[in-house]
C-alpha cells in the first residue's frame, strides 16, 4: 500500500524536521567548543567550559538547581502519593471538591501569583533563599502530581486493598506495603516531569531570588551571565548554556521513555 516515492519523501521530511530541531542546540555546542578570541588553543577546546564553570559561578548554581529540584520532587511526590491514595482508594468524601480545587492550579500561570508571593517572601525575610523557590514550585507541581497518582491508584484492582484489609492491615500499612511500591513506576515518571519543570523554571527564580548569587539556580545565572556580553565572550556564554542544559539533556536521553510518556500524558490531563 505504500509506494516507494512516498516512503522516501516522508522520511526526507522527517529528517529535515529533525535537523531543524537539532540545529540550535548543536550549533551552540560547536560554538562552545570553538576557541574564544585571544585564546591560544587551536582546534576544539574545552577551555570555554572551564571559563564558564569558574567565572560564571556555575559550579554553585548547578548545585543550587539540584537542591531546589530534588527538594521539590521529593516533597511533591510524597504529598501526591498520600493525597492520591486518600482521594482514589479511601474515597475521601469531599474528593470532588478537592479535585475541583486542584483543577484551578493545573491551568494557572505564574503571573497570577507572582506579586503576592514576592510580598510574602520579602515580608518573612525568605526572599533570596532556597525556600522562596522550593515552596511555590511544590505548590504548582502538586495538582498535576495528585491527579497523576490518583489516576494511577484508581486503575489498580480493588481486590488488593480488600485482601490486605481482611488480613488486618490498616489503611496506612496498605499504602506503605501495597500501593506505594506498586506506584513506584508512576512516581518515577512523575518525578522526571517535575524535575524538568523545576530545573527549567525562570520567572519565579528571577523574582524570588534576584540578589543572592549563593542560591541562584542555573537558568537564572545563565541569564545574568549571558546579559554581560560586553565582558564575556559569546563562546563562553555558549559553554555556560550547554552546562545548564546538560543535566536535563542527559537525563532525557537515558530516561526518554519516561520523559516522553510523562510529557504526553501530562498534557492529556
Amino acid at each position: 500500500m505504500e509506494s516507494r516515492k512516498e516512503v522516501i519523501a516522508g522520511h526526507l521530511v522527517l529528517i529535515f524536521g529533525a535537523l531543524i530541531a537539532l540545529h540550535p542546540f548543536v550549533s551552540i555546542i560547536l560554538q562552545a567548543l570553538t576557541p574564544a578570541p585571544g585564546s591560544t588553543a587551536t582546534g576544539w577546546t574545552l577551555e570555554n567550559f572551564i571559563g564558564a564553570w569558574t567565572r560564571g559561578g556555575f559550579s554553585q548554581s548547578l548545585v543550587n538547581s539540584a537542591i531546589v529540584a530534588f527538594a521539590v520532587v521529593f516533597v511533591t511526590a510524597v504529598a501526591a502519593v498520600l493525597a492520591g491514595y486518600v482521594l482514589s482508594v479511601l474515597k475521601f468524601r469531599w474528593r470532588v471538591a478537592v479535585f475541583a480545587l486542584l483543577m484551578i492550579g493545573l491551568v494557572l500561570p505564574s503571573e497570577a501569583r507572582i506579586i503576592p508571593l514576592y510580598n510574602f517572601f520579602s515580608s518573612t525575610g525568605l526572599l533570596n533563599t532556597y525556600w522562596a523557590l522550593i515552596l511555590p514550585q511544590i505548590a504548582s507541581s502538586l495538582p498535576l502530581a495528585t491527579f497523576w497518582m490518583a489516576n494511577y491508584f484508581a486503575q489498580l484492582p480493588n481486590s488488593l486493598a480488600e485482601a490486605a484489609s481482611l488480613d488486618g492491615a490498616g489503611e496506612f500499612e496498605i499504602l506503605r506495603y501495597i500501593y506505594a511500591p506498586l506506584g513506584l513506576s508512576a512516581v518515577l515518571t512523575l518525578s522526571c516531569l517535575i524535575f524538568l519543570y523545576t530545573w527549567n523554571e525562570f520567572m519565579l527564580a528571577l523574582v524570588l531570588m534576584p540578589d543572592n548569587v549563593a542560591v541562584q539556580t542555573a537558568p537564572l545565572s545563565l541569564s545574568f551571565f549571558a546579559g554581560n556580553e560586553r565582558t564575556t565572550e559569546p563562546e563562553v556564554i555558549a559553554a555556560a548554556a550547554v552546562l545548564v542544559a546538560l543535566p536535563v539533556v542527559l537525563a532525557y536521553f537515558f530516561l526518554q521513555r519516561r520523559f516522553m510518556s510523562g510529557l504526553l500524558e501530562g498534557a492529556v490531563k
Partner: peptide, 23 residues
Amino acid sequence: FRTVLFLPQILATVVVAVAWRWI
C-alpha cells in the same frame, strides 16, 4: 525521530534564548 523532535521541549527556555540569540 521522536526523541530528536522532542528535544526543544525539554531545553530550558534560557538556553533556547541564548542559542537563538546566536542564530
